[in-house]
Design a protein around this nucleic acid. Sequence first.
DNA 1: CATCATCAGTTTATAACTAAACTGATGATG
DNA 2: CATCATCAGTTTAGTTATAAACTGATGATG
Lengths: 151, 151
Amino acid sequence: MADKKRVLLMLKRKTRLELLLWFRLSRFYNQSIRKSNHHLKEWDLTTAQFDVLAQVGSHQPITQKDLANKLFVTKGNVTQLIRKMEKLELVERRQEWKVKYLTLTNKGEKLFQNIVPKQENYQASQFHALNKQEQKQLLELLRKLQKGQEE
Amino acid sequence: MADKKRVLLMLKRKTRLELLLWFRLSRFYNQSIRKSNHHLKEWDLTTAQFDVLAQVGSHQPITQKDLANKLFVTKGNVTQLIRKMEKLELVERRQEWKVKYLTLTNKGEKLFQNIVPKQENYQASQFHALNKQEQKQLLELLRKLQKGQEE
DNA sequence: CATCATCAGTTTATAACTAAACTGATGATG
DNA sequence: CATCATCAGTTTAGTTATAAACTGATGATG
């Protein structure tokens, strides 16, 4: 396996557990995203668009700024994403007192009801290689990592 | 904390450990990348360019296809990245028997020697919130996840 | 009440990435 | 030896993302 060879090489050069971690984590994440995109193609959505649909659907009405925070992206990116979603008639924008509130259209709502549970199942399935005990462990570790990151 | 509120909301809607995991993991990853980019700005490099430098530097000569595999990206992406790196005079391309071998230029080699250890320290520091024991645990969990992904 | 900081959202320029179609060389096979 | 599949790399069109500058409304304060 090419993978094994690469890992050995890295170990040889410098035995750093953390770099292996970085390597594994980005690999897992990127693969998951790619597979997720592939999966969502059935509904002509991308992962980013799905994320918008899911967040707006479960927090509407929501401002663009709040959405940006929830998705961990910039406001500029939200502007672009929403423009797209408006064209697809999945999301509506309503100016109100200096702030713009986002809600789903009927079409968006229907898609939300239909697709979100399925995609969440799919996302969840990425972790089925671990049992509940291990999942909890992983969650705990990720929490610690995040806390370390905030400093 | 807005974060806490969001987590509670997700829990309310559906208590799914896996979705929390997904959420935490992507957050950690995206933040790390962003911070890494910021960090590398000092040398006018992006994270993607650093990855190329690091991989070519430690496996030269290497073909574009192999590089794509190591970086988990498409061949098309590598074509673009290398074009950029060639312009920056960090990487050289040498056609040889149908395959193109990549090596670092002198300039690239110098940068490699200088920057790679620093950036690796930086990447490693992302995991310093965990002790060695926990790091090993995390690595083990990620290995299992990856194995699950391959099926 | 004039002005000034702040803040939500937009714009712009640029990077990174994919999927899918394409190019052109290699070399196997009928 | 002609042709055909394969394979490395390129191209193209489109999406996602950022950082940084900008716009225009709000509202505080002197």
